[in-house]
Design a protein around this nucleic acid. Structure first.
Lengths: 127, 127
DNA sequence: CGGTATCCAGACCGATACTG
DNA sequence: CAGTATCGGTCTGGATACCG
Protein backbone atom coordinates (compact mmCIF):
# COMPACT_ATOMS: atom_id res chain seq x y z
CA UNK A 1 0.00 0.00 0.00
CA UNK A 2 1.37 3.36 -1.03
CA UNK A 3 4.05 1.49 -2.95
CA UNK A 4 5.62 3.55 -5.65
CA UNK A 5 4.91 1.80 -8.89
CA UNK A 6 6.95 4.06 -11.04
CA UNK A 7 9.35 6.89 -10.48
CA UNK A 8 9.13 8.47 -13.89
CA UNK A 9 7.43 11.85 -13.89
CA UNK A 10 6.33 11.15 -17.46
CA UNK A 11 6.17 7.39 -17.90
CA UNK A 12 5.04 7.51 -21.49
CA UNK A 13 7.94 9.69 -22.56
CA UNK A 14 10.11 6.99 -24.08
CA UNK A 15 7.97 3.90 -24.37
CA UNK A 16 7.56 1.74 -27.45
CA UNK A 17 6.30 3.77 -30.39
CA UNK A 18 5.61 6.78 -28.24
CA UNK A 19 5.91 10.17 -29.98
CA UNK A 20 9.49 10.64 -28.89
CA UNK A 21 10.58 7.28 -30.22
CA UNK A 22 8.86 7.87 -33.52
CA UNK A 23 10.48 11.28 -33.93
CA UNK A 24 13.85 9.77 -33.03
CA UNK A 25 13.28 7.25 -35.80
CA UNK A 26 13.16 10.19 -38.19
CA UNK A 27 16.02 12.40 -37.00
CA UNK A 28 18.31 10.16 -34.92
CA UNK A 29 20.63 9.06 -37.68
CA UNK A 30 23.96 10.08 -39.04
CA UNK A 31 22.88 12.98 -41.26
CA UNK A 32 19.35 14.27 -40.62
CA UNK A 33 20.27 16.74 -37.91
CA UNK A 34 23.11 18.11 -40.00
CA UNK A 35 20.91 18.51 -43.06
CA UNK A 36 18.27 20.32 -41.02
CA UNK A 37 20.85 22.68 -39.61
CA UNK A 38 22.23 23.25 -43.08
CA UNK A 39 18.84 24.70 -44.05
CA UNK A 40 18.37 26.65 -40.85
CA UNK A 41 19.31 30.06 -42.18
CA UNK A 42 17.98 29.93 -45.72
CA UNK A 43 16.87 27.59 -48.47
CA UNK A 44 19.55 25.89 -50.51
CA UNK A 45 19.95 24.04 -53.77
CA UNK A 46 20.76 20.36 -53.84
CA UNK A 47 24.39 20.76 -54.86
CA UNK A 48 24.89 23.51 -52.33
CA UNK A 49 23.84 21.16 -49.53
CA UNK A 50 26.07 18.42 -50.84
CA UNK A 51 29.07 20.73 -51.01
CA UNK A 52 28.41 22.02 -47.50
CA UNK A 53 28.08 18.65 -45.84
CA UNK A 54 31.40 16.93 -46.20
CA UNK A 55 31.37 13.18 -46.44
CA UNK A 56 27.77 12.61 -47.46
CA UNK A 57 27.19 10.62 -50.62
CA UNK A 58 24.64 11.61 -53.21
CA UNK A 59 22.47 8.62 -52.51
CA UNK A 60 22.37 9.16 -48.77
CA UNK A 61 21.75 12.88 -49.15
CA UNK A 62 18.76 12.22 -51.40
CA UNK A 63 17.43 9.58 -49.01
CA UNK A 64 17.78 11.93 -46.08
CA UNK A 65 16.09 14.80 -47.89
CA UNK A 66 13.18 12.58 -48.93
CA UNK A 67 12.71 11.32 -45.40
CA UNK A 68 12.71 14.82 -43.94
CA UNK A 69 10.32 15.98 -46.64
CA UNK A 70 8.04 13.02 -46.01
CA UNK A 71 7.75 13.97 -42.38
CA UNK A 72 7.01 17.60 -43.08
CA UNK A 73 10.27 19.07 -41.84
CA UNK A 74 11.59 20.33 -45.15
CA UNK A 75 10.07 21.35 -48.46
CA UNK A 76 11.25 20.55 -51.96
CA UNK A 77 10.57 23.10 -54.62
CA UNK A 78 11.30 22.54 -58.29
CA UNK A 79 12.15 25.95 -59.71
CA UNK A 80 13.02 24.76 -63.19
CA UNK A 81 13.12 21.45 -64.99
CA UNK A 82 15.78 22.21 -67.56
CA UNK A 83 18.29 23.10 -66.46
CA UNK A 84 17.26 21.47 -63.17
CA UNK A 85 17.00 23.80 -60.23
CA UNK A 86 15.62 22.44 -56.99
CA UNK A 87 15.51 24.28 -53.72
CA UNK A 88 15.12 22.80 -50.28
CA UNK A 89 13.95 24.77 -47.28
CA UNK A 90 12.66 24.23 -43.79
CA UNK A 91 8.91 24.20 -43.35
CA UNK A 92 7.33 26.14 -40.50
CA UNK A 93 7.32 22.86 -38.61
CA UNK A 94 10.98 22.21 -39.36
CA UNK A 95 11.93 25.66 -38.10
CA UNK A 96 10.49 24.90 -34.70
CA UNK A 97 12.86 21.96 -34.41
CA UNK A 98 16.02 24.01 -34.87
CA UNK A 99 16.07 25.32 -31.32
CA UNK A 100 15.99 21.90 -29.63
CA UNK A 101 18.66 20.74 -32.07
CA UNK A 102 20.86 23.68 -31.17
CA UNK A 103 20.47 22.56 -27.57
CA UNK A 104 22.24 19.35 -28.50
CA UNK A 105 24.84 21.19 -30.57
CA UNK A 106 25.65 23.57 -27.76
CA UNK A 107 25.96 20.71 -25.31
CA UNK A 108 28.32 18.99 -27.72
CA UNK A 109 30.63 21.94 -27.99
CA UNK A 110 30.61 22.54 -24.27
CA UNK A 111 31.28 18.97 -23.14
CA UNK A 112 33.00 17.45 -26.13
CA UNK A 113 36.41 17.37 -24.50
CA UNK A 114 35.06 15.60 -21.43
CA UNK A 115 33.57 12.93 -23.63
CA UNK A 116 36.88 12.52 -25.44
CA UNK A 117 38.75 12.28 -22.15
CA UNK A 118 36.34 9.65 -20.85
CA UNK A 119 36.81 7.63 -24.01
CA UNK A 120 40.58 7.78 -23.68
CA UNK A 121 40.37 6.68 -20.06
CA UNK A 122 38.10 3.79 -20.96
CA UNK A 123 40.44 2.76 -23.76
CA UNK A 124 43.39 2.74 -21.35
CA UNK A 125 41.68 0.37 -18.96
CA UNK A 126 40.88 -2.11 -21.71
CA UNK A 127 44.64 -2.54 -22.35
CA UNK B 1 34.29 43.35 -51.76
CA UNK B 2 32.02 42.97 -48.84
CA UNK B 3 30.76 39.75 -50.41
CA UNK B 4 29.17 37.41 -47.93
CA UNK B 5 31.20 34.22 -47.99
CA UNK B 6 29.03 32.31 -45.63
CA UNK B 7 25.71 32.86 -43.99
CA UNK B 8 26.16 30.50 -41.08
CA UNK B 9 26.59 32.24 -37.75
CA UNK B 10 28.61 29.26 -36.56
CA UNK B 11 30.18 27.63 -39.60
CA UNK B 12 31.98 24.92 -37.69
CA UNK B 13 28.82 23.75 -35.97
CA UNK B 14 28.11 20.72 -38.14
CA UNK B 15 31.19 20.13 -40.25
CA UNK B 16 33.00 16.82 -40.70
CA UNK B 17 34.10 15.39 -37.37
CA UNK B 18 33.21 18.55 -35.51
CA UNK B 19 32.15 18.10 -31.86
CA UNK B 20 28.48 17.97 -32.73
CA UNK B 21 28.94 15.28 -35.32
CA UNK B 22 31.04 13.20 -32.98
CA UNK B 23 28.47 13.47 -30.20
CA UNK B 24 25.73 12.60 -32.65
CA UNK B 25 27.73 9.49 -33.52
CA UNK B 26 27.35 8.48 -29.88
CA UNK B 27 23.73 9.31 -29.13
CA UNK B 28 21.94 9.59 -32.48
CA UNK B 29 20.79 6.00 -32.73
CA UNK B 30 17.68 4.06 -31.99
CA UNK B 31 18.21 3.41 -28.27
CA UNK B 32 20.86 5.62 -26.65
CA UNK B 33 18.57 8.52 -25.88
CA UNK B 34 15.97 6.21 -24.42
CA UNK B 35 18.49 4.42 -22.23
CA UNK B 36 19.83 7.75 -20.96
CA UNK B 37 16.35 8.90 -20.10
CA UNK B 38 15.66 5.59 -18.39
CA UNK B 39 18.46 6.43 -15.95
CA UNK B 40 17.50 10.07 -15.54
CA UNK B 41 15.76 9.77 -12.21
CA UNK B 42 17.81 7.11 -10.48
CA UNK B 43 20.23 4.28 -11.06
CA UNK B 44 18.82 0.98 -12.27
CA UNK B 45 19.84 -2.64 -12.55
CA UNK B 46 20.38 -4.27 -15.90
CA UNK B 47 17.15 -6.24 -15.92
CA UNK B 48 15.19 -3.26 -14.75
CA UNK B 49 16.34 -1.28 -17.77
CA UNK B 50 15.55 -4.14 -20.07
CA UNK B 51 12.05 -4.51 -18.68
CA UNK B 52 11.40 -0.77 -18.96
CA UNK B 53 12.51 -0.40 -22.53
CA UNK B 54 10.18 -2.47 -24.61
CA UNK B 55 11.54 -3.96 -27.76
CA UNK B 56 15.25 -3.80 -27.03
CA UNK B 57 17.18 -7.06 -27.24
CA UNK B 58 19.72 -8.10 -24.65
CA UNK B 59 22.59 -7.78 -27.05
CA UNK B 60 21.68 -4.31 -28.23
CA UNK B 61 21.04 -3.13 -24.68
CA UNK B 62 24.47 -4.30 -23.60
CA UNK B 63 26.09 -2.68 -26.62
CA UNK B 64 24.31 0.58 -25.95
CA UNK B 65 25.25 0.58 -22.27
CA UNK B 66 28.92 -0.09 -23.11
CA UNK B 67 28.98 2.69 -25.64
CA UNK B 68 27.46 5.19 -23.23
CA UNK B 69 29.84 4.08 -20.51
CA UNK B 70 32.80 4.37 -22.86
CA UNK B 71 31.92 7.99 -23.55
CA UNK B 72 31.50 8.90 -19.92
CA UNK B 73 27.74 9.36 -19.91
CA UNK B 74 26.83 6.45 -17.65
CA UNK B 75 28.61 4.46 -14.98
CA UNK B 76 28.57 0.72 -14.41
CA UNK B 77 28.89 -0.49 -10.87
CA UNK B 78 29.21 -4.14 -9.90
CA UNK B 79 27.56 -4.46 -6.51
CA UNK B 80 27.91 -8.21 -6.21
CA UNK B 81 29.35 -10.98 -8.32
CA UNK B 82 27.20 -13.85 -7.15
CA UNK B 83 24.38 -13.44 -7.44
CA UNK B 84 25.18 -10.80 -10.07
CA UNK B 85 24.01 -7.33 -9.27
CA UNK B 86 25.04 -4.52 -11.57
CA UNK B 87 23.78 -0.99 -11.36
CA UNK B 88 23.89 1.63 -14.07
CA UNK B 89 23.62 5.33 -13.38
CA UNK B 90 24.20 8.63 -15.09
CA UNK B 91 27.54 10.30 -14.49
CA UNK B 92 27.67 14.00 -13.68
CA UNK B 93 28.41 14.51 -17.36
CA UNK B 94 25.47 12.36 -18.39
CA UNK B 95 23.12 14.34 -16.18
CA UNK B 96 23.94 17.54 -18.01
CA UNK B 97 22.73 15.94 -21.21
CA UNK B 98 19.24 15.17 -19.95
CA UNK B 99 17.96 18.71 -20.36
CA UNK B 100 18.84 19.01 -24.06
CA UNK B 101 17.33 15.56 -24.60
CA UNK B 102 14.12 16.62 -22.93
CA UNK B 103 14.07 19.51 -25.37
CA UNK B 104 13.77 16.96 -28.16
CA UNK B 105 11.23 14.90 -26.23
CA UNK B 106 9.03 17.91 -25.56
CA UNK B 107 9.19 18.93 -29.19
CA UNK B 108 8.18 15.41 -30.16
CA UNK B 109 5.12 15.42 -27.98
CA UNK B 110 4.09 18.88 -29.09
CA UNK B 111 4.46 18.37 -32.84
CA UNK B 112 4.08 14.64 -33.24
CA UNK B 113 0.64 14.86 -34.78
CA UNK B 114 1.79 17.39 -37.35
CA UNK B 115 4.56 15.05 -38.39
CA UNK B 116 2.10 12.18 -38.69
CA UNK B 117 -0.27 14.32 -40.75
CA UNK B 118 2.55 15.36 -43.06
CA UNK B 119 3.54 11.74 -43.54
CA UNK B 120 -0.03 10.77 -44.40
CA UNK B 121 -0.28 13.61 -46.89
CA UNK B 122 3.00 12.60 -48.52
CA UNK B 123 1.86 9.00 -48.71
CA UNK B 124 -1.37 10.05 -50.44
CA UNK B 125 0.47 11.89 -53.17
CA UNK B 126 2.69 8.91 -53.95
CA UNK B 127 -0.44 6.92 -54.90
C1' DC C 1 21.94 19.98 -62.24
C1' DG C 2 19.59 16.83 -59.69
C1' DG C 3 18.81 13.03 -59.52
C1' DT C 4 17.84 7.08 -60.29
C1' DA C 5 19.37 2.29 -60.64
C1' DT C 6 22.32 -1.28 -59.53
C1' DC C 7 25.79 -3.82 -57.26
C1' DC C 8 28.35 -5.08 -53.41
C1' DA C 9 30.70 -5.06 -48.70
C1' DG C 10 30.20 -4.22 -44.09
C1' DA C 11 27.53 -2.94 -40.09
C1' DC C 12 23.72 -3.92 -37.55
C1' DC C 13 20.33 -6.63 -35.17
C1' DG C 14 17.36 -10.42 -33.44
C1' DA C 15 17.17 -15.13 -32.00
C1' DT C 16 19.23 -18.73 -29.78
C1' DA C 17 22.37 -21.17 -26.87
C1' DC C 18 25.34 -21.06 -23.15
C1' DT C 19 27.71 -19.42 -18.51
C1' DG C 20 29.69 -17.92 -13.78
C1' DC D 1 21.14 -12.06 -12.76
C1' DA D 2 23.91 -10.22 -16.11
C1' DG D 3 25.82 -11.13 -19.30
C1' DT D 4 28.96 -13.57 -23.78
C1' DA D 5 29.20 -16.21 -28.23
C1' DT D 6 27.61 -17.37 -32.49
C1' DC D 7 24.81 -17.47 -36.59
C1' DG D 8 21.95 -15.53 -40.27
C1' DG D 9 19.20 -12.18 -42.25
C1' DT D 10 18.51 -7.32 -42.99
C1' DC D 11 19.58 -2.82 -43.55
C1' DT D 12 22.89 0.73 -44.59
C1' DG D 13 26.11 3.05 -47.21
C1' DG D 14 29.66 3.78 -50.75
C1' DA D 15 30.98 3.40 -55.64
C1' DT D 16 29.74 3.44 -60.18
C1' DA D 17 26.99 4.05 -64.22
C1' DC D 18 23.42 6.29 -66.37
C1' DC D 19 19.53 9.90 -67.47
C1' DG D 20 16.24 14.01 -68.63
Amino acid sequence: MGEMLDDFPEPELFTLNCPTQQILDVIADKWSVIVLYCLAYRSRRYTEIQRRIEGISQKVLTQTLRKLERHGLIERQVLSEMPPNVEYSLTALGKTLIDPLLGIANWSRKYFEEVEAARDRYEQQQV
